[in-house]
Every structure is written in C-alpha cells, then in structure tokens.
Design a protein around this nucleic acid. Structure first.
Length: 476
RNA sequence: GCCCUCAUGGUCAAGUGGUUAAGACACUAGCCUCUCACGCUGGAAUCAGGGGUUCAAUUCCCCUUGAGGGUACCA
C-alpha cells in the first residue's frame, strides 16, 4: 500500500515550530517511504480563522523546502483539499452514518446541554435524542428545527488502537461522550472531518500532535461503523517552551517566520527541529534534507516532550553559515550590513570575510560591527598583556613602528599588511604577536574585536588607519 | 473530578537486568592563534521518590510525585 501522509493545519495563526515539526515528520516519513505528502486545510471553525494564515502555511512549507504532492494549490486526485469546500461531502457521510447506527440527530437546546453539566462545566451528554423515532426526527427537520449530528458511542466496552510511537492506547467507552460530528451550521467538527478526509484521501499514516492521542480510539469507532480500514497512527509529543508550557501560536512563540527574519537559515531550523523528538541513533546531528529523509524512522521518535532550546539552534545555524560559499554568504549578509553602521562606509566583502566564521545568525551582524565606528579615547591599560609581555612601553614602540611602516606602504590588502607588519616587528625586535596586538588595540580601542589587526586595518584603509594610530600615540 | 500519556546532566539525547551510563548544546580549563571566533584536548554535571521481583535494577512491576493532553457546536 502506498504511504500517504498529510499535514492538516487549521489556519488560525502563524506556523510555530511545533506545527512545523509535525509537518516535517509527516514529510520525512512520506519521502522515506517513497510516498506522498498531502496538505489539507482544516478550516471548519470559521470563528477562529485568521486571514492570511493559509498563505503563511504555503510559504513556510516552501521556504522550508518541503514539497507537497497534493494541496489546495497544486490540486490532486482527492480534492478539494480545503475542508470548508467539502461541506456537502460531510453532510452526506453524516447521514450515512446515521443510517448505519453510528450517529444520530440531536435537537437539544444549549440550555438543556448546560443543565447536564456540573459546577465545573463537566458532564456528558445523556443520549437524550437517541430515543427519537425516525418519524419524530423527520418531523423536526421539516419544521426547520436546528440540529446537530452526534456520534453514537457504545455505553460499554473498550476501544483501543496501536500507536506506532506510543504503543497500545485503550479507552473505556464509558469515558467517552457522544461528540458532535456535524454542527448546526452544517460544518463538521474536527472529530468527523478528519476521519472522512483521511479515509477519502487514502491517508495511510496519520501523523499529528499528541493532543489527539486519547481521542483517537473514538475516531476508530467511526471507521468501524463505516466498515473502513483504520489508518496507522503516529502521535507526537509536544515541543515545550519551558518545563510546563507548550509552544503556542497564540503568544507567537518560536515562530518560523520570525526566525527567518532573525537571520536563521531555513534548513538550520529544519535540521534543529528534526532533532526535537527524534534522533537517527547514530549520533549524527547535522543532516541535509536528503539525509533526514533516508535516516528518518519511527523507532527514533521519542515519547517524551522536549523543550525548545534556541542556543542549540544558533549553534547549528552557525555551522551552516560557516560553510556557505562566500558569495552566497555575502548576499545573505548584505541586508544586515545595510542596516548597520558600516553602510556606505566600509567594504562589505572585507567585513564579510571577517564575520562569516564569527556569527551564528545574521542578525548578529549590526551589533558586531558597531565597534568600527566607536573609536574614541580609551584607557592605555588596554594594551597590557602579560602573556605576550606587553606593557605601555612596548605598546608605544609598536605604535611608532606601525606608523612608520604603514606611512610608506600603500597596499592595504590583508595579506600584504600581515606580511609587512610581521616583518617590521621582527626588524625592530618585537614579536609579531606583540606588534599586531598593539596595532589592533590602537586602531579600535577595543580589547576584543572580530578580526585581527591587519584585517581591520585593511577595512579602515590607509588614511583612517594612520589617523587612528596617530591619535592613539597622542594618548600616551 | 474522571480518562490518556510521559519522566536519563541546565537543555537535546543514546543505552542496558551486571556499562567507567555514549554523544551534542550551554558552562568551564587549557592548547592553537594578530585579540575574539573557528578548531583541538580536558572538566564539572543525569537515571524524580518509595516499595517490590531478582544473586543483581537506571532498565521489569506497583504506588507516589511532577508534568503534558483530553473531558467543546476548537482543532
């Protein structure tokens, strides 16, 4: 049987990392098994729908490099792929289910339903309308009374299933309620629509969040009533924001788009979240999409929830940035240079060369380059370095040597500067480390900087470098 | 309340009836080095608690605790 998985989000907000990870696992599982990955939009709750949310879903999947085989956009043999456009289908099947005895019409008022609940709002529906005769039901419908259709759950017995990651899940029917399958507005509830669609769309493996773990047995009752084959299930433990809170859309937690804006590479995010709840068992952490696909397996999925840890994602992103071809790195870095102090002042290429190995995410750039424009009077103790045996005397000497040397040197490329300054150090009885350290401090006024003396001098250019050296000299 | 589920360092995690309980991030010491970063070599740090079963339990069973989910005309 062909493997077909689906990602079925409801368009109620942005895509956070938890949703994306569910989509990713469904995608990886499908690809690993040469199957199909389907996108279905579950928009049966008009009240919660957020405008633009569907586009965010398309866009996220696209930038995350997860290709979809069937969706509202690309179509497919089992459409439509938007639930609100399938209203008639659900109605037909709901009626059919009523005929099969798996469901029944219910005309109870909200008030009566309320009265069934205790002070905590807990209370099961009492199957009141189940006893209505066929004639009574027809009469009420022709009278135009509003109705819903409820699932008819057996009063006794157990219902269970085998979850591929959690094992056997068993629930007592007595603990289940006769849920509403079709709302009075004619729309199905999730409880019903997901069953109908998964069956009609020939979904072989249902991969979704663990919030459905305990309600899945009752969906199986519907499959059984129809006489349909039950799909395989893989439920996924949630991703948490901390020990007690789930990542939530509502608070905009760990949102994919925001991470992109912050300067994360899409694949770094994907790679990281793949590891949140799954591991390839071979210790490998950095994986291409193809590797993820070939390594993905149900056995590697973890049952316990995991906490989203941005520092680790940063680290992974740094790895990916570091191995970017330089011109690609520059292209991606440019917007961040443009919003920094170096815009229109310094060479992006030279700065890029210095920064590529030093940033983890692109948004590190603006603050990391600020020092270059922040040259002002500083304390001479900055020069002191015990290990390199540098004191103020050595520093002054080094600055003098550098001024002397650079005045008659015009090639300010990094390599040339390195060569000529190293030589000047040796010629004057200093170690090259001593001289370069002092030059770097003298032209920046910072104890630590991204990049070394020659790289920074190259960025500043001859005139500015000499100006700063002279200024530093005057500080002694 | 009732039902389902989970529990290895701060975090992600591997793993087992007998192990020095992997590895990664973060932290930290040192090396490398024109500082920082990268890289390399080390360090500290974990089996939630209590009962069983067993020669032996982190591993199997039970209880407790903690946490998550469900209990909607939300998904």
């Amino acid at each position: 049987m062909e493997v077909r998985t689906r990602f079925a989000p409801s368009p109620t907000g942005f895509m956070h990392i938890g949703n994306l990870r569910t989509a990713l696992y469904a995608y990886l599982f499908a690809r690993h098994n040469n199957g199909k990955f389907i996108l279905r939009i579950e928009d049966t709750d008009q009240e919660r729908e957020v405008e633009g949310a569907v586009d965010v879903i398309y866009k996220t999947l696209e930038t995350a490099n997860m290709t979809v085989d069937e969706s509202p956009l690309v179509g497919g043999a089992y459409g439509p792929y938007i639930q609100s456009e399938r209203k008639q289908i659900y109605l037909d099947y709901a009626k059919k289910l009523v005929e099969l005895g798996g469901a029944y019409y219910c005309f109870c008022s909200k008030e009566r339903l309320e009265s069934l609940k205790d002070e905590n709002g807990i209370g099961k529906y009492d199957k009141h309308c189940l006893s209505l005769s066929k004639e009574e039901v027809e009469q009420k419908i022709t009278n135009g009374e509003p109705y819903v259709i409820r699932q008819n759950i057996p009063k006794k017995g157990l219902t269970s299933y085998e979850d591929l990651v959690f094992g056997t899940i068993e629930v007592d029917c007595a603990d289940l309620e006769d849920n509403i399958l079709l709302k009075s507005d004619g729309m199905p509830t999730y409880n019903f629509a997901n069953v109908i669609d998964d069956h009609l769309m020939k979904i072989s493996h249902v991969i979704r969040g663990s919030e459905y773990l305990s309600s899945t047995p009752k969906y199986n009752l519907i499959y059984e009533a129809f006489g349909w084959e039950i799909p395989k299930y893989m439920h996924l433990a949630p991703i948490m924001k901390d020990a007690t809170r789930k990542l939530s859309k509502r608070y905009g937690d760990a949102n994919f788009e925001d991470f992109i804006k912050k300067g994360y590479l899409p694949h770094a995010i994907i790679n990281y979240i793949a590891l949140l709840g799954w591991n390839p068992k071979n210790g490998q952490e950095k994986m291409t999409m193809d590797e993820l696909i070939s390594l993905f397996s149900v056995e590697g999925i973890n049952k316990s929830s995991s906490i989203f840890d941005e520092p680790k994602m940063r680290w992974l992103n740094g790895l990916y940035i570091n191995e970017l071809p330089f011109d690609e790195f520059l292209t991606l870095a440019k917007p961040y240079f443009d919003m920094s102090v170096i815009k229109d002042k310094y060479d992006y290429e030279k700065f890029g060369a210095v920064l590529q190995s030093r940033i983890d995410i692109f948004s590190d750039i603006p603050t990391m380059v600020e020092f270059i424009e922040d040259f002002k009077a500083y304390d001479l103790s900055l020069f002191e370095h015990k290990k390199m045996k540098i004191d103020k005397d050595v520093a002054l000497k080094a600055v003098d040597i550098a001024i002397d040397c650079l005045q008659k040197h015009d090639d300010f490329s990094n390599s040339s500067l390195y060569e000529v300054l190293s030589q000047a150090a040796i010629d004057n009885g200093l170690k090259k480390g001593q001289l370069l350290w002092c030059v770097r401090v003298a032209i920046t006024g910072y104890e630590q900087t991204p990049g070394g003396a020659t790289e920074l001098a190259s960025i500043l250019g001859k005139e500015e470098t000499l100006r700063r050296l002279e200024f530093s000299k005057s500080l002694f």
